[in-house]
């Protein structure tokens, strides 16, 4: 009975506070992915961010903020302790229970699904801006990003043929995955004028030496921390099978900043340009 009373009180309280959010702009924000943090920053709300997840490392000043989430492991209370009025989180990172918990605490959580395409990037920016309560600034940034992308695309280097790029996500030799079709990496490779070496499957699947040789990529792409987790360029070239591929023969191993590559938001033009430069 008493619990029920509590429910009623809390529902009323959260309802009242929810109506407030619609009116007021978010002042205290927690951003739980690198793309979200970067976008909120680009919208000019960097000073409103209280805490981020562990992958948010750009721009530099964001590293001064506390990190409250790591690999989808986080504590409700730690996040609540910052008394945020808005939590921006990629769809699926919070379980149903977590969403329910934040709801019962009256904290607004907006889950954002990122689509990996040019339209997806601008949509992402607009969604975040809408969640913060500043659609105008969002529109501005979205349009600027879109025109930047168009400029970048028109200035891309063009090779005789588009190189086959194999992306390996590595966290040590034991855990290596390659990017298939439909993944964020697949899309950025296409945008940068390359061709994903993997056409057989979608999403990320475990790496095998035979699949590497069969796909025979011209370029092998990795995140910078991925390459270092394998022990650097020289160690990677020594891995079984690598020397049989064109990429291995020409030592065409490209390492790039991870957050930039999968940003798919305001930094998409930058990412396309950088990758295009490196693979062609």
């Amino acid at each position: 009975m008493r619990i029920k009373k509590y429910y009623i009180v809390l529902i009323i309280v959260s309802f009242l506070s929810a109506t407030q959010y619609v009116v007021a702009q978010a002042k205290r924000i927690i951003t739980l992915s690198s793309a979200i943090s970067e976008t909120v920053n680009a919208l000019g709300y960097g000073k409103n961010i209280l805490a981020t997840d562990v992958t948010s490392v750009w721009p530099e000043e964001i590293n001064r903020l506390p990190k409250v989430s790591r690999n989808r492991s986080f504590s409700i209370e730690s996040i609540t302790a910052y008394r945020p009025d808005l939590i921006l989180v990629p769809e699926g990172d919070f379980s149903k229970e977590n969403l329910y918990q934040f709801k019962s605490l009256g904290i607004r959580v907006v889950t954002i699904r990122q689509e990996f395409s040019i339209q997806g990037a601008t949509k992402f920016i607009r969604q975040i801006a809408a969640a913060i309560g500043d659609k105008a600034r969002g529109e501005q940034l979205a349009q600027k990003t879109e025109s930047n992308i168009n400029t970048t695309l028109s200035q891309l280097k063009k090779g005789s043929k588009s190189p086959k790029v194999l992306f390996i996500y590595a966290r040590g030799v034991g855990t290596m995955n390659v990017a298939g079709k439909g993944s964020s990496i697949d899309e950025i490779i296409k945008l940068a004028g390359g061709k994903n070496a993997i056409q057989e499957f979608s999403d990320f699947k475990p790496y095998t030496t035979e699949a590497l040789i069969k796909s025979n990529p011209d370029v092998i792409l990795m995140f910078d921390f991925g390459l270092s987790s394998l022990g650097g360029r020289a160690a990677f070239l020594d891995l079984p099978g690598v020397s049989y591929t064109n990429a291995g023969k020409n030592k065409k191993i490209v390492e790039m900043n991870g957050p930039l590559l999968i940003n798919f938001s305001n930094r998409l033009p930058e990412a396309i340009k950088a990758l295009n430069n490196r693979i062609l």
Binding site: Y7, G92, D93, E97
Partner: peptide, 24 residues
């Protein structure tokens, strides 16, 4: 399972009381 499902499965396999609500 797809990526989305995989996340909730792994989350659940690790064991946690973090998802406690009055309902469950």
């Amino acid at each position: 399972a797809d990526e989305q499902k995989l996340r909730s499965i792994t989350f659940w396999m690790m064991g946690s009381l973090g998802g406690a609500t009055w309902q469950n």
